[in-house]
Amino acid sequence: MPVRIQEHDFDVSSELAALRAGDKRVGAVATFVGVVRDLNDASQVSTLTLEHYPGMTEKALAQIVEDAKQRWDIYDALVIHRVGPLSPSDQIVLVAVTSAHRGESFAACQFIMDYLKTRAPFWKKEQTPEGERWVEARASDEDAAARW
């Protein structure tokens, strides 16, 4: 299953081992881990709550992984995205891609993250000393996705 939405944390090391288990063609594994920061737009964040749109999320992420496989010569890809309440320093998202050589997996990993940021239906709500607020989308994320 290349796409998982879950509340609980993930162990990067065991996920990477499982992703490439038994595939001796693999010469490169590129990985991205997104982490909750304690400061956003000059406010201290105590809790970051992630919600998503069940059904569409899985479909959108599977399509992004499929697009990456069409564009680059990669063997496999894994996306894990957490939902629910998270604290600063918690892991939010894991993207891992295997290929024969590093160029393909580096590029595909970045592509998947850029597309995830702008196309997968997740939303963040921050709890700060000033109260709760929904995180606004950033134009820079649209720019990052548009370059592919």
């Binding site: 992630l50 702008t118 196309r119 997968a120 239906p121 997740f122 963040k124 929904w134 989308a137």
Partner: peptide, 10 residues
């Protein structure tokens, strides 16, 4: 039909 603001995951 789902209505939502621009996404902010990742």
């Amino acid at each position: 039909v789902a209505l939502f603001p621009p996404v902010t995951g990742g």
